[in-house]
Design a binder for these strands. Structure first.
Lengths: 250, 250
DNA sequence: ACGGGGGCTTTCACTGAGTGGAAGCTGGGG
DNA sequence: CCCCAGCTTCCACTCAGTGAAAGCCCCCGT
């Protein structure tokens, strides 16, 4: 084989999947090639094979999209649909009691991924999307996940510049470090207007035998928020789920 | 390369993903190799690469599972999460009005795939799973999807033996053909105890510019069911979604 | 402590699946 | 009618991938 030796076929195929994103879920062959950094003919051949299997689909406009078969396989991810199936009833309970936004997220590397969300039609609008990513250092769920992440992960997050979303976003590594210690101590996290100036979130950990695997939060309008009152609710829900996952209480 | 010439690397990678199923979402390396029909060393190498990217994950038990990264990419499928995002509010309305099970499905080849489900805690238990498959000829959603599928697909389904789930399952191709014509004529489908003896479902099509792309249904206990009363509800919900997808009314 | 076995990991020399430049093909806009 | 951008096909070269076999590890029974 010629160009770019050292790059495996598998990595090229995965690069094609990487080319898709929430912002651009439909790509032409050329866009796909450009984003994946591969020659057109290579992409053409690999895409044809993914198409045949159902990993990609092609619309009437000729653009490639992620295919249903890949969605099906993805739905077998324990930390994806698996977690959602367990958590949804509890999240619905939490919604019924509060009528506020309920969010479920897990950590993937140095970011969080939203697994499920119940958005009350009358609750504060939140800009999160199921399947979407976000930084760990600003949201309630993020703080919980970061506080219980391996030290190596924490250090890597603290070492990188912490993006500022509002004036209240914690961007100082030292302060964030103290924040995380506090989250571990009290067993829940509060993010007060650290993402948007109208929202406050309260989050609690969900434990499995191997440790904290997910976080659950309520996102409410900051001016009608009472974190101290909400925390026990979210924590209780987290404990119910921890028990369901075998992550013992305590 | 040696063994099994004619098999592409990509097809081997996809065979690994195919090895996972709702019934066995966690596999050892050997199981993976056996199911994919590939030598152990080949699987070991390919799986390592999928692991590094996040398409697979490995639990404390050493078993491979579908990774979150694949779930993320899968969530970009327009017919998966995309459709769900649009449909969920309408499905919730339907649930609020009826407090019965609401199901959303699309066709994938000769089967249907459930995209979303709202299962009332007090509604009839249904055995469907989000991400799960089912035959087209028995359920309400299946009949709708089949009735509006390309003729080639219909013929292939009709040509194969139609599995019988209950005494009321339509297994005669001729009768099924008349059934489908009726579904197209009246604009909705009723499956009365054709899957289980306690349930009845009423389904309506969801149209996009390219035709019927999904189906929506209510599943109720057969003895408290009035299909004629439910049909307009489901059809109305279907039409709301069709309009949202640009699939004009009529 | 010891031996056996099942499962995972690594090695190595061979080879055909994959490559990408270039040439052909579309289709739609001016 | 021609041009251009994007897609598809072709072809000779070559390195990524292959799989049998050997090595390793850990658990279980004795």
């Amino acid at each position: 084989m010629r160009g770019q030796p050292g790059r495996s076929v598998t990595s090229r195929v995965l690069a094609l999947l990487d080319a898709f994103s929430p912002a651009s879920p439909a790509l032409t062959l050329s866009e796909l090639a450009r984003r994946a950094g591969l020659p057109l003919s290579t992409v053409h051949r690999r895409a044809a094979e993914l198409l045949a299997w159902g990993a990609l689909e092609r619309g009437v406009d000729g653009r490639y999209r992620i295919g249903l078969r890949l969605w099906e396989v993805g739905s077998l991810a324990p930390r994806g649909l698996g977690l959602r199936e367990v958590a949804l009833p509890v999240m619905e309970d939490l919604y019924e009691v509060t009528h506020e936004n309920v969010q479920l997220a897990v950590r993937q590397d140095l970011e969080l991924v939203f697994i499920e969300r119940i958005a009350g039609r009358h609750a504060v609008p939140v800009l999160t999307r199921v399947g979407g990513r976000f930084a760990l250092h600003a949201t309630g769920v993020g703080l919980v996940l970061l506080a219980h992440a391996p030290v190596g992960v924490q250090e890597r997050v603290l070492a990188a510049p912490l993006e500022r979303y509002t004036d209240l976003t914690v961007t100082d590594p030292g302060r964030l470090r103290r924040c995380l210690a506090e989250v571990r101590r009290v067993g829940y996290a509060v993010s007060d207007r650290q993402v948007t100036l109208d929202a406050l979130s309260v989050a609690a950990p969900i434990r499995a035998p191997e440790g904290v695997v997910a976080a659950l939060s309520l996102v409410v309008a900051h001016d009608r928020a009472d974190p101290v009152a909400l925390a026990p609710l979210v924590q209780a829900a987290g404990r119910v789920l921890s028990r369901a996952l075998g992550g013992a209480h305590r």
